[in-house]
Simulated scan of single mutants.
Amino acid sequence: MKRPNPPRITDEDRRLFRDAIGEVQRLAPMAPPPATERPAPHPRMFEADEAAVASELLDMDFDPATLEVGEELGYLRDGYPPRLLRQLKRGQFSVGDELDLHQMNAAAAQASIVAFLAEARQAGVRCVRIVHGKGLRSKAAGPVLKALTDRMLRRRDDVIAFASARAAQGGTGAVIVLLKEQK
């Protein structure tokens, strides 16, 4: 749509304006403020993340004996037929979206999982893959993101079932999640 041209300013408009504002005194041009040297960037968030790792690992309620690096995950909510979990393990559901948690700390991974599952349900996606990794660099702490993913998915009401992915889809480093239908 084309905007209308502004009305032209007439000599009468100019005269009325000058009469209304009175005498005008021009100001001398001002010099720009002196340039200040900017401080060097400081990686505050990186340092905070690194400092938080130790306390996060201590707060994880993680027992390495309960979940080994190569252990497969599997869960089926009560009230659903066992064939759903078997179908999920066999790869009989089409994965509609994927989330990769690699390089995330536990807090970022947790927030990402919550947001990802909400977006998937909103979009009507019933089956998703979450790549949590195998925890090979987690050392004595065990697979931190794998344990976090397992715990979170078991507690969510919108998760019907989940199982470790087939080898071609990430194996024990990923889970395939079946979500309830959006109502």
Rank of each mutant, 00 (worst) to 15 (best):
L153I: 07
A20P: 00
H42W: 11
R126W: 00
R126G: 01
H102P: 08
D49Q: 13
G124V: 08
D19V: 10
K134P: 00
L99C: 04
A65F: 10
G124H: 12
K2E: 13
L76G: 11
D100V: 10
A54C: 00
A48T: 06
A168M: 02
L136K: 11
G171K: 04
M104L: 15
L117N: 08
D150S: 09
L84E: 09
E23C: 02
P143F: 04
Q110H: 14
L27E: 14
R77A: 11
S112M: 03
E68D: 08
P41D: 05
A163C: 07
D63G: 03
P34V: 13
A174F: 05
Q92A: 13
Q25M: 09
Q103W: 12
V131H: 04
M104C: 08
T66V: 03
E50C: 09
S55W: 06
E68Q: 09
E72M: 01
S138M: 05
E23R: 14
P39Y: 03
A165G: 01
E72N: 09
R137T: 15
Q169A: 15
I9F: 10
D61P: 00
G170V: 00
R137V: 08
L58T: 08
R86M: 05
A123K: 15
P33H: 07
V128W: 10
D59Y: 02
P41E: 08
T10I: 08
F116N: 03
L88H: 09
D61V: 01
P81T: 04
K2F: 04
H102V: 09
A108S: 14
A161L: 07
M1W: 07
F93T: 07
H132W: 02
I176K: 01
Q92N: 12
R155A: 15
L145P: 06
D11V: 10
M1G: 14
A140I: 12
F62Y: 12
G135D: 04
A141W: 13
Q169D: 15
M45S: 12
R15N: 05
L16R: 15
A52Y: 05
A123Y: 02
V24S: 09
G70L: 14
T10R: 08
L57D: 11
P81C: 01
G170S: 02
A115D: 14
R121V: 11
M104H: 12
F93C: 02
E181L: 07
F162C: 04
H132D: 04
K139I: 05
E56N: 14
H102G: 06
L58S: 10
I9M: 10
L136P: 00
F93Q: 04
M1A: 15
K146N: 03
A108P: 00
P64N: 07
I176D: 11
D13M: 13
G74Q: 11
Y75V: 02
